[in-house]
Design a protein around this nucleic acid. Structure first.
Lengths: 113, 113
DNA sequence: TTTGATACCTAAGTTTCTTATATATATTTG
DNA sequence: CAAATATATATAAGAAACTTAGGTATCAAA
């Protein structure tokens, strides 16, 4: 398992791009989806996820829609147009970052990726 | 320019692997080398670098050798055997992390890297 | 009926940086 | 030759983004 420090800074990138790809999702669903896709390697904690979702909503990058499932509630999140732009931007930033790391860590790293 | 949050958690990975590749280096030299290799995209701040070097030394991952250059001093850092193992480990962790991100962000990300 | 899964949330504490400051020598430039 | 820039080290306060821990509640399965 890789160190969790690396995940820092990528959470919003993951949320925005996952939501853009999957359409609307609710918080718990996001944790399960990420866990499944990553083969259990990435487990988003609720203490990180929920505040992050709230911040994205407050910044107008996500909108919410509350749905009642029996007596429980679900808050579905959808990416706004502004959020879509940021999703792309974050994706590019991450790609740039990885390419830069390739340079700095080369030649050893290049062979691993 | 990518967001600086991404760099968080990669500083020790960079230091250890750069030192392993380049042999002994001193702090200021590390900042200049990283800046040059990354084409100015990654500029290590002194406030991050020096405390990190001290922590690595305290943990027995680096050893130091102080040299007088005229009336100034230089502290050369060298990777220990233990530091070499961690360098490799950190490299693997980072590669694993990137591969995991590829999964989570795919299919969009795969085409960019 | 109690355990685990589903579903939301917040707050204190930790780590790891950034920003700012301090000190001092050496070199370049106007 | 004076002033600015580069070289070279270091620490400390504050910010950001998490982790850990706790809280609330419903639903399904054992």
């Amino acid at each position: 398992m890789y160190s969790k420090e690396l995940v820092k800074g990528t959470l919003k990138t993951i949320i925005l791009n996952l939501l853009e790809e999957q359409g609307k999702m609710y918080g718990y669903e996001i944790t399960q989806k990420v866990r499944a896709i990553s083969d259990g390697k990435l487990v988003l904690t609720e203490g990180a996820l929920y505040p992050s979702l709230h911040a994205l909503e407050a910044d107008g990058l996500l909108t919410t829609e509350t749905v009642n499932i029996g007596k429980r509630i679900r808050k579905y999140y959808t990416v706004t147009a502004k959020g879509g732009s940021l999703a792309q931007e974050k994706m590019n930033e991450f790609a740039d970052f990885v390419n830069m790391m390739k340079l700095v860590l080369s030649p050893k790293f290049s062979t691993q990726i």
